[in-house]
Simulated scan of single mutants.
Amino acid sequence: WVGPDATNGDASFQELLRLPNVIWTGPADPKEVPHYMELIDIGMMPYKNSPYNQAVFPLKLFEFLAAGKPVVGSNLPSTSKMKKPYIYEYVEGD
Score class of each variant (00 low, 15 high):
residue 23 I to H: 15
residue 23 I to G: 00
residue 24 W to E: 01
residue 24 W to A: 15
residue 24 W to Q: 06
residue 25 T to I: 09
residue 25 T to C: 05
residue 25 T to K: 13
residue 25 T to E: 11
residue 26 G to I: 02
residue 26 G to M: 00
residue 27 P to F: 12
residue 28 A to P: 09
residue 28 A to T: 01
residue 28 A to H: 05
residue 29 D to G: 10
residue 29 D to N: 14
residue 30 P to W: 11
residue 30 P to A: 11
residue 32 E to P: 07
residue 32 E to C: 07
residue 32 E to Y: 01
residue 33 V to H: 07
residue 33 V to E: 08
residue 33 V to I: 15
residue 33 V to D: 08
residue 34 P to N: 11
residue 34 P to T: 00
residue 34 P to K: 11
residue 35 H to C: 09
residue 36 Y to F: 08
residue 37 M to S: 03
residue 37 M to F: 12
residue 37 M to E: 08
residue 38 E to H: 09
residue 38 E to T: 13
residue 39 L to V: 06
residue 39 L to N: 07
residue 40 I to L: 07
residue 41 D to L: 01
residue 41 D to S: 05
residue 41 D to C: 03
residue 41 D to R: 04
residue 42 I to S: 00
residue 42 I to P: 07
residue 43 G to R: 00
residue 43 G to V: 00
residue 43 G to E: 01
residue 44 M to T: 06
residue 44 M to V: 02
residue 45 M to Q: 07
residue 46 P to Q: 12
residue 46 P to Y: 10
residue 47 Y to I: 02
residue 47 Y to L: 05
residue 47 Y to Q: 14
residue 47 Y to C: 04
residue 49 N to M: 10
residue 49 N to A: 12
residue 49 N to C: 10
residue 49 N to I: 05
residue 50 S to C: 12
residue 50 S to K: 03
residue 50 S to V: 08
residue 51 P to Q: 10
residue 51 P to I: 13
residue 52 Y to K: 10
residue 52 Y to C: 10
residue 53 N to I: 04
residue 54 Q to M: 15
residue 54 Q to A: 12
residue 55 A to T: 15
residue 55 A to K: 13
residue 56 V to N: 12
residue 57 F to T: 13
residue 57 F to C: 10
residue 58 P to N: 10
residue 58 P to I: 06
residue 58 P to A: 06
residue 58 P to R: 04
residue 59 L to H: 12
residue 59 L to P: 11
residue 59 L to S: 15
residue 59 L to R: 12
residue 60 K to Q: 13
residue 60 K to R: 15
residue 61 L to V: 00
residue 61 L to E: 02
residue 62 F to K: 03
residue 62 F to H: 06
residue 62 F to I: 00
residue 62 F to N: 09
residue 63 E to I: 02
residue 63 E to Q: 15
residue 63 E to A: 10
residue 63 E to S: 12
residue 64 F to Q: 05
residue 64 F to E: 08
residue 64 F to V: 02
residue 64 F to L: 05
residue 67 A to V: 04
residue 67 A to S: 15
residue 67 A to C: 09
residue 69 K to S: 02
residue 69 K to L: 03
residue 69 K to Q: 03
residue 70 P to E: 01
residue 70 P to N: 08
residue 71 V to D: 00
residue 71 V to P: 04
residue 71 V to A: 01
residue 72 V to I: 10
residue 72 V to D: 07
residue 73 G to E: 02
residue 73 G to Q: 02
residue 73 G to P: 09
residue 73 G to K: 03
residue 74 S to C: 05
residue 74 S to H: 06
residue 74 S to M: 05
residue 75 N to W: 11
residue 75 N to D: 10
residue 76 L to W: 13
residue 76 L to I: 04
residue 77 P to K: 14
residue 77 P to A: 05
residue 77 P to E: 09
residue 78 S to G: 07
residue 78 S to W: 14
residue 78 S to V: 04
residue 79 T to Y: 13
residue 79 T to F: 11
residue 79 T to D: 04
residue 80 S to C: 14
residue 80 S to T: 15
residue 80 S to M: 14
residue 81 K to F: 14
residue 81 K to G: 13
residue 81 K to Q: 15
residue 82 M to C: 12
residue 82 M to A: 06
residue 82 M to R: 06
residue 82 M to T: 04
residue 83 K to P: 09
residue 84 K to Y: 08
residue 84 K to H: 09
residue 85 P to H: 06
residue 85 P to E: 01
residue 87 I to W: 01
residue 87 I to L: 06
residue 88 Y to Q: 04
residue 88 Y to E: 00
residue 89 E to Q: 13
residue 89 E to G: 03
residue 89 E to T: 04
residue 90 Y to V: 03
residue 90 Y to R: 00
residue 90 Y to S: 00
residue 92 E to S: 14
